Amino acid sequence: MKRHLALFLAYQGTAYHGFQVQKNALTVARVLQDAIAAALGSREEIKGCSRTDAGVHALAYCVSFFTASGIPCEKLPLALNAHLPADIRVFSAREVEPDFHARYSCTGKAYLYRVRNAPAASPFSYQLAWRVWPKLELQPMRRAAALLCGQHDFASFMAAGSTIEAEGGSTVRTVRSFEVEQKGDELRFMIEADGYLYHMVRILVGTLVEAGAGRRDPDGVPAILAARDRAAAGQTAPAKGLALAKVFYDEFTLDGGGELWA
Rank of each mutant, 00 (worst) to 15 (best):
F124S: 10
E259H: 15
A38V: 02
F8V: 07
R215F: 10
F189M: 05
A239Q: 05
R30M: 07
G258D: 15
L32K: 11
S125D: 12
Q12F: 09
F178P: 06
R215Q: 13
A15E: 14
T52D: 02
G161Q: 11
A86V: 10
F91T: 04
F91P: 00
S156T: 00
D194H: 04
A29H: 12
A226I: 02
A155R: 10
D153T: 02
F252L: 13
E137Q: 14
V21G: 01
F66I: 02
L197N: 07
A211T: 14
V96S: 13
K109F: 03
A121Q: 07
A213R: 09
A227F: 11
K135Q: 12
V205Y: 04
A227M: 01
P77W: 06
L40S: 00
H57E: 03
C62E: 12
G257Y: 02
E45S: 08
L225N: 04
A243D: 00
T14V: 06
A86K: 13
R89Q: 11
A129L: 06
V63G: 08
E259S: 12
A10P: 00
A211P: 01
T174S: 14
G55D: 03
R89D: 01
A226Q: 13
F154M: 08
L40K: 02
A39T: 04
C106N: 07
A233H: 05
R131W: 08
R94T: 11
G13N: 00
F157Q: 08
K47L: 13
A231K: 15
A166V: 07
P119L: 08
Y61N: 07
L5A: 06
Y16R: 08
E165R: 13
V132C: 11
G48E: 06
A29C: 13
L5Q: 05
P85Y: 05
H83K: 14
C62T: 12
A68E: 14
V115P: 02
R30I: 01
Q182H: 01
Y11S: 10
Y104C: 00
M200L: 04
E137R: 15
A102P: 01
V180L: 15
A129V: 09
T67E: 12
D153M: 09
A213M: 12
F154Y: 15
L242D: 02
K2W: 10
S170D: 14
G150V: 00
V28A: 04
L128H: 15
R3L: 06
V132N: 03
I71W: 03
P218S: 02
A120R: 15
D217W: 01
D99V: 05
K75E: 15
F252P: 05
E179C: 05
Y11Q: 03
V115W: 10
Y126P: 00
E186W: 14
K75T: 08
R188W: 12
S170L: 09
D250R: 15
D185M: 09
A144T: 04
A82S: 11
D185Y: 04
I36K: 11
N117I: 01
A110G: 13
